[in-house]
Design a protein around this nucleic acid. Structure first.
Lengths: 138, 138
DNA sequence: TTATTATTGCAATTAAGTTGCAAATTGTCA
DNA sequence: TGACAATTTGCAACTTAATTGCAATAATAA
């Protein structure tokens, strides 16, 4: 999905297409998972006037609409990323803070859970922390 | 490890054995993962005079010493649990907020990562969200 | 183009966690 | 046992992330 498709979706759902919303979608579509602060910083750097409160509210809306996914890493700040075609997880470098995407087959895990509990899994969080290839060489 | 063993460890490391530390260990050893606020509430309920700042600092210390593990669930508050014998993950009920432990074999995941990246995984977070057996019946 | 209503921006507030420092408590040694 | 030195605690003040109320602004429908 590109920015245009998301803005169409937005209007289909009856929400208005505003400058802040378009700008925030643009930021999200060009980067890795970002915190609200980081999205806001990006906006500013590109000359946008959007307020940080609007950034909070817009990200909340986009999450509700299923455009983006909220992820919790090690700190208290939430991060958001566009929900692309493929389900993936993250390799978070504890040194340089860079985030790599990674694909893992988790069907097995869900089977194991089914054997142990009546719990019905709706979603999961899976993040890996460590040292990326680059930082290992330093 | 029981409370006594932890307090011994504490002294072996050169830290003092104080009332707040003992009380907090007791709370941790009798429950599921708790936030700082929750630990503090437990203390109060049991007549303890311990301050919430001390609770924050003590949990931080215990984490540093490897007594407890910090976990991030869906919100911004950190939760802590005693590091028991077995490595496990959680089934977090989105309805009643109860937390079940679950055992999954994750060796496979780590192999899959090795094939995709030079990243060296040091630790990981894996949490499942859904509806527990009880709440499904309601 | 105007009117209606959603959306935004500002200021103030809440909530989680942190910091500085004086007072209290612990462990050690005489 | 008592006193000293150093750690630990509790209070108050502060920081940071996020939320809320409300008046001003902007987007869509007619």
């Amino acid at each position: 999905m590109n920015v245009k498709e998301y803005t169409n979706q937005l209007q289909n759902f009856g929400y208005r297409l505003t400058t802040p919303r378009t700008e925030i979608l643009k930021v999200l579509s060009t980067t890795k998972p970002l915190s609200t602060k980081e999205v806001f910083a990006f906006l500013k750097k590109n000359g946008s006037q959007v307020d940080i409160v609007t950034t909070y509210r817009t990200l909340e809306l986009f999450e509700k609409l299923g455009f983006i996914r909220k992820i919790q890493l090690e700190d208290k700040t939430s991060r958001y990323e566009l929900i692309g075609a493929s389900h993936h997880h993250h390799l978070v470098c504890m040194k340089c803070k860079n985030i790599e995407d990674v694909q893992v087959e988790e069907g097995l895990l869900l089977n194991q859970i089914k054997k142990q509990s009546r719990f019905r899994v709706e979603k999961h969080a899976l993040e890996f922390f460590g040292i990326c290839g680059n930082c290992q060489r330093l």
